[in-house]
Simulated scan of single mutants.
Amino acid sequence: MDVDFRSGCPIAATLDLVGDRWTLVILRDMLNGKSRYSHFLDSPERITTNVLADRLAKMEAAGLVTATLYSKRPPRREYRLTAKGRDLRPTVQAMCRWANTHIPGTWTPPADFMADKPG
């Protein structure tokens, strides 16, 4: 893993992995079933292709996702969360609950996403 952790603080170290503007959004999409590059580009936040490619590569290097080639011409990959990536689900769910309570106008996530165990 090529992450330089700024300290041994667990919050700082976690933010070093997922604390940028896009990683948790991609993680949210993956937890909701998205797995292909084009699926991520369809998200309402409108991530750019170069940023998406960079974040997916960083997530793979950090062991949060695996990439599998599903087309050789042109080369296309499908991304899946690893156990390490899936373990972030309760954190993302907690962020959703917090935002729904404290930030007016935020979307209510699908019930199956908020379930303790994925459906």
Rank of each mutant, 00 (worst) to 15 (best):
R21P: 08
I11N: 01
R6W: 09
L81V: 02
W98M: 12
A12S: 10
P90K: 05
P74C: 09
C96R: 07
M30C: 10
G33N: 11
P74M: 01
R73S: 14
A61R: 07
L15T: 01
D116V: 08
L52C: 01
A115C: 00
Q93V: 10
M95C: 10
T66A: 14
R80P: 00
I11S: 04
L15I: 00
T48I: 13
F113S: 05
P109S: 06
Y70A: 08
K72A: 15
D112N: 12
D29W: 11
A62P: 01
P75D: 10
M59P: 04
N32K: 15
G63Q: 07
A115I: 03
F5N: 07
A94D: 09
D16F: 00
L52I: 05
T108W: 02
G63L: 03
L56K: 04
P109W: 01
P44A: 14
L17V: 09
T23K: 01
R86L: 15
R21C: 13
D42M: 13
G85P: 01
V25Y: 07
R97A: 12
S43Q: 14
L15E: 06
D2W: 07
T66Q: 14
A115Q: 07
W22P: 00
I11V: 11
A115G: 03
D112G: 07
D42E: 15
L88W: 04
I47A: 11
R97Y: 05
L41V: 02
T108V: 14
C9N: 11
A13R: 02
K84M: 11
G105C: 06
H102Y: 14
D87K: 08
L27T: 01
R80A: 15
F113H: 08
S38I: 13
G63C: 00
T48P: 03
T82L: 07
R86K: 15
L64R: 07
S35M: 15
K58E: 03
F40G: 07
R89G: 02
L52W: 01
S7G: 07
